[in-house]
Design a protein around this nucleic acid. Structure first.
Lengths: 290, 290
DNA sequence: AATTCAGTTCCAGTAAATGGAACTACGGGT
DNA sequence: ACCCGTAGTTCCATTTACTGGAACTGAATT
């Protein structure tokens, strides 16, 4: 039977011309800012706005950020409210709702990439004693799907589901190195860079240069490029069967690690990544029967 | 005022001063057979089906479970796919998508109930050394919004976002005890009971009897009613301002705890719940700390 | 080659979303 | 009290895009 692994993908690269599914950007090539998929897309646009905002938004805040008429927006919000996707505070501001949590819990526990990787992530955590992340590529960012904290479970899940840029994280760079070259360059160009620290690779050229090295070594380093004082060692995981690119990493405060430790981690991380990749290929799925 | 009260909200105060409008969800009829909210509702119905199913579903599996025509269903799925709410395996089965994780991460980190409760949950965890849960009531179930594991962060978030029944969990029963009496009875009747263990309270009468006791003591016990060998001590948290009912609990294997421990926990749990309730009332908003 | 089953596309008909305007409610300034 | 501005909500004719039946593809099975 075919490799049956359920996995996550989001239209990662792929051969040009396999299907005419313009999933990438706007279906119609107008420069319309909203590439909404009909009604659903519009509703999600509002949901995104509410969920991704830093502060809780009130009705008029949302109205201002959108070009929809009041009546329309109000109905959309009402629908979201009724569906439990958002809920409303006493001061009438809106925040994401419980139903999202419930949905995501299933998304997470069913994610077969995570399931397959789980034991390896755990070994890696045991072997290093430091924080281990597992992530997948999603366009220009990495989304963390699992995380094991260094020790005392500080706060679980603080990162799970969170997104970080590709260009300044170990996992992100490791994943980019797995892309076909043109695709890699294309993405590097599309990124909007921010210089988080002095070490941040803040141009496509810098990034692509580093990626060349990563391609050879199979290991990516984050040398305080995202947060000062934080370093990490990462390796990418590639499953072309399923069009999934992911990565694992070990993270630690810079002061705590020396060259020898890093050396050691490189092997561990590389092995973990290879093992996960292998398990995925061999179809060692959550339900491997049938 | 309608007796039905499946309010979805879970946030907290914010504006000091005026409120008193607990935001009834009036426009909902009785239990109309999921008279979906227009297009959005239908899309979510499909999403729910995919997310809540145990196995990944293929197109025809979904088609069978719904009464929609093929064309319609196909388009709905395509929309969900395009929006990244679901994604598709190699074998064409569908599973929930990354976007849900991302959304939920925000929902979680913004949830002010959780934020306010956080420090108290942590103290409780420190004081008992056992697993601590924080949950909110959602109609007939409790949804866990936070969890601190007993020791080695086994797997974070294994429960966060998950739903459990009200009648066989400590938190669930503690929350029910906070409902107005008629409402409590009404819900107890609506529950469909399953006898998980020998100790499970599997009729409305048994449940309501126990709840009487909980009302007096302010503490709910789960005496291996959900899982054999697992006990827990819980207390409810009530915020009428905002129409939120939640709860905290400490859970441990039965063999590990004796009466004296339980006695001790009762106080700790009760105090934690009271402290959270107080913090909510005093408008200690989401952004006031951390 | 014929038959099934799974997935996809098409298009007239129709249900549902739209958006403008009108309405309520609150608060503050004069 | 007044008026006015802002915030949120409702209404309804118009128009959009969702619906669903049927017909098409294409792979696996007989």
């Amino acid at each position: 039977m075919s490799v049956e692994g359920h996995t996550y993908q989001h239209n990662v690269v792929g051969a040009p011309g396999t299907d005419g599914d313009p999933c990438e950007d706007s279906p119609r090539d107008e420069h319309a800012p909203s590439r909404s998929t009909g009604t659903l897309g519009k509703a999600l646009e509002v949901l995104d706005m509410i969920a991704l905002s830093e502060q809780p938004l009130r009705f008029t805040d949302i109205l201002r950020q959108t070009d929809q008429p009041r009546g329309t927006l109000h109905r959309q919000i009402k629908n979201l409210l009724e569906e439990g996707l958002i809920c409303q505070n006493a001061d009438q501001s809106y925040i994401p709702g419980l139903r999202l949590l419930k949905l995501a819990a299933r998304a997470w526990s069913q994610n077969s990439f995570r399931l397959i990787a789980e034991s390896h992530v755990r070994s890696l955590h045991a072997a290093t004693g430091e924080t281990v992340h597992l992530g997948v590529m999603n366009d220009l960012e990495v989304i963390y799907v699992d995380k094991l904290e260094t020790r005392q479970s500080v706060r679980m899940h603080s990162q799970v589901g969170n997104a970080s840029p590709l260009y300044c994280t170990g996992i992100g760079k490791a994943m980019m190195a797995l892309l076909p070259r043109e695709e890699c360059v294309a993405r590097a160009r599309r990124i909007s860079y921010k210089r988080h620290t002095a070490a941040t690779l803040y141009t496509p050229e810098l990034l692509l240069g580093e990626i060349e090295i990563i391609r050879e070594t199979g290991i990516a380093h984050d040398r305080e490029e995202h947060e000062p004082g934080i370093r990490c060692v990462a390796a990418g995981i590639n499953n072309t069967d399923i069009d999934l690119i992911g990565g694992v990493s070990v993270t630690a405060p810079a002061y705590r690690i020396d060259d020898k430790t890093v050396e050691n981690w490189q092997h561990l991380v590389r092995e973990a990544a290879a093992a996960i990749e292998l398990d995925m290929r061999s179809g060692l799925g959550p339900r491997s029967h049938e």
